Amino acid sequence: MSEFSRMPRYDIRNDGAGPYAIFYCDMCGREFRSQPNFGGAVAQDLGRQAVSGLLRKVPLVGSVAANNLVGEDPRYSMKMDNNQLNAAWQQVQQHFRECPTCQRIVCLSDFDVQSGYCQEDSPRTDEIAESRGAQAGAAIKGLASAFGLGEAFQGMGENIRSAVNTAQTAANQMARCPQDGTLANAGTKFCPNCGTPMVQPTAAICPACGTETKGAKFCPNCGAKQEAAQPSGKCPKCGTDAKGAKFCPECGTKIA
């Protein structure tokens, strides 16, 4: 395990057995607690009581000296010196790692051990997010199966995918504002939100019979399979003719 450049955030607590430290993950705030030195607190308390009892028997100054010696009871102290704090940090270090990029000290749940970086700075960010999504999906499916809802869950997923495809098809048939993305009915010349000239949808025409297919894979009139239209060379964002360029000369958008 690599060395740490500092300690993470911490608090000092005491539940009646001596002070201990709570260290927090810099990313998620998860806490890890050290153990109080219960044996040391008891031994120190017994020694203080014995010395205090002896001093109290000394005439005149005995009680004053005893009170000054006793001071704060270690069993209820909310203070730790540097040595005690370092010892507490040593107890919980195995649960933390320090990211070399952002210098945050995070718990193992927020650290990508394979790459050696926190999960936000890891080069495997997309892979981690995909893995988390797969785990969450598996957990939901497992829960649904446990309650006999597996088939219903699968049907719901198919309905969601169908709804997304339908919405996407409808959006492709509408005029779109290249400035703010506002959608409007085909034929709308200016954006109702900002007044920018709208980019009109390109009608999908069957090459066999000339029927408008509205994005269907097969012509609703003759059944001919519809091949994907080749790029027109126009910018999909602002409609400028790119004249074969890979990027729009007007707004810089990549031309498919």
Rank of each mutant, 00 (worst) to 15 (best):
N172A: 15
T202R: 12
P8F: 08
A129M: 13
A88V: 06
P249D: 08
C251V: 06
C219S: 02
C209K: 00
N172L: 11
N83L: 13
N159R: 14
Q94R: 13
T166Q: 13
K214Q: 13
P178L: 00
S109E: 14
D26E: 15
G187P: 05
G252V: 05
N172C: 04
A228L: 14
W89P: 01
P19K: 02
D26P: 10
I12D: 01
S52K: 06
A229Y: 02
A21N: 00
M78N: 12
K234Q: 04
A66E: 03
K225W: 03
Y20E: 02
A256Y: 08
T101P: 00
G215L: 06
G62T: 01
A229F: 01
E3L: 14
G53H: 04
W89C: 08
K254G: 11
P197C: 10
T188A: 07
A171I: 09
P178Q: 03
I128F: 03
A43Q: 09
L54H: 05
P123S: 04
P249G: 10
N37V: 07
C209T: 01
R161P: 00
D81T: 01
Y117W: 09
G181S: 07
K246S: 13
A171L: 11
E212P: 07
T101W: 00
N82F: 07
G239E: 01
G233F: 07
C251R: 05
Q91T: 03
R75N: 09
R33S: 14
S77H: 06
G215N: 08
T182F: 00
Y117M: 14
F96Q: 04
P100R: 06
R75D: 10
K79A: 11
G116N: 07
G71S: 13
G71D: 06
N67M: 06
I12R: 03
M156Q: 13
D45R: 12
C102T: 05
G40Y: 07
M7C: 05
M7I: 12
P192E: 01
F153R: 08
A65E: 03
G40H: 06
A171C: 05
A152H: 11
Y24M: 02
N68C: 10
E3M: 09
N67T: 14
V58D: 00
G18T: 03
G116S: 04
I105S: 05
